Amino acid sequence: MKLNILLIFLTLFFVGCSSNNDWIYTFSGESTSWKAVMDIEPYVKEDSTGVVYTFKIAKKIDNKVSKIHYEAKIPNSENGGNLDSVDLEKINKKELLKIFNEFPNLVDPNWLGKDTDKKELETYFSELQIDINWEDENGKHSEKIILQLN
């Protein structure tokens, strides 16, 4: 009997703990040539917990892209880079490509979670954007994408 109660207690405990990590917030936006997505989700690894921002982009145009440089503007951070030839192949197939993960240092690590108020999220991420500069057979181009909470 004590074993059954212990098993029930442990099951409820682990189900309750895992449900706190059962959430995701998605921000997205589009420009004429591109679409972008940023997912915010829990990050749990060994003794470390927090959140991770995952940025993805996809091409909407048919032109073959030969170079891409991106700059993401995130609250309290910026991240940028160039895509390599393997990633360019995926982009030219119009796949949604993960370009980077950001592990933010939040002042209050418990603020961003399953029960975070959507208005607070919209306010905090109100200036979330990604700038994409690329080259194709028609020359050099640049577009800015504003991302909003879905």
Rank of each mutant, 00 (worst) to 15 (best):
F125D: 03
T32M: 15
K59R: 06
D62S: 13
L106V: 01
M1C: 07
S18K: 13
N150H: 08
V86C: 01
G81M: 05
S19D: 14
T116P: 01
G80D: 13
E78L: 03
V51T: 02
K140C: 05
K64G: 03
I61V: 05
I24Y: 05
N82P: 08
F103T: 11
E30G: 03
T32F: 15
I5W: 08
E71N: 11
I8R: 11
E89W: 11
G81C: 04
K144Q: 08
D131M: 10
D117R: 08
L149I: 02
F103A: 04
V51M: 08
K67H: 04
G16H: 12
F14Y: 15
D136T: 12
D117C: 06
Y124V: 10
L121F: 14
I146G: 09
L147G: 06
P104R: 01
G50M: 01
E71D: 09
L7I: 13
M38Y: 02
G16K: 06
I8N: 15
L88T: 00
L6D: 13
Y53Q: 13
F13M: 09
K56D: 11
E71Q: 09
N20F: 10
L112A: 01
E89T: 14
T116V: 13
Q129T: 09
E135V: 00
K67R: 10
F125E: 01
D108A: 07
P109Y: 00
